[in-house]
Amino acid sequence: MIKVSGLHKSFGTQHVLQGVDMEIQTGEAAIIVGRSGGGKSVLLKHITGLIQPDQGQVFINGVDISHLEERELLKIRRDMAVMFQGAALFDSMSVGENVGFYLQREGKMTTGEIEKKVAETLELVDLNGMQHKWPSDLSGGMKKRVGLARAIIHNPSIVFYDEPTAGLDPVVSDSIDHLIRRICDIRQVTTVVITHDMRTVRTVGEKVYMLVNGKIYLTATPDELFASQDPVVYKFVNGISDSEDVLS
């Protein structure tokens, strides 16, 4: 279970998170939506312990991780995986080395076993035989899928996806959505997806958290989200900008 309580974070004078409270149950597929620049990625980095909050706590399976030492955090993160918004592939390694990185560092498998597992995982994200390419030679969408493969290769029990389908064509987006859904179902993985893509919300989501002005504005099921008549939610879901927004 992931529990966030009273989370505050400022960068300089910018108060990005202003008291976020949320609870994600084990095995649940949660979606976090919100405006661009609203602090979703920052929230994710708090939940994964990559940033420490100014105030508030993050509990992973009951352990408060908000002020743990990095080496303690590493132990907790063994069960987690993060797919980064910008893929964050290691550019000094080939695709295969990137994907197999976790297993290689762990040192429990032989090189042959790792290669086999890498090939399988790349197949899952529709990148068969790309092991020997370099990240710099891939398109943006391919990088994201490599990032996804790298994240899920060690069967983590919590997976975070930061905009998994941004920049992908509709067909691949759909297959990624279904893949995320499938991983969640088969392995009972707690899934947290940040997205702007309403189709991802529909395909993957069981519960949606909407982040507005640094707080969770709405917690709802996808159906409730799409049916909501709340002006803020309605405008977000249907992509309607305020006229003042345009002017400012």
Binding site: T48, G86, R150
Partner: peptide, 12 residues
């Protein structure tokens, strides 16, 4: 480019 953060999530 967040590669250090990625390392930190990959048990390293």
């Amino acid at each position: 480019s967040e590669q250090i953060d990625a390392l930190r999530t990959l048990n390293t």
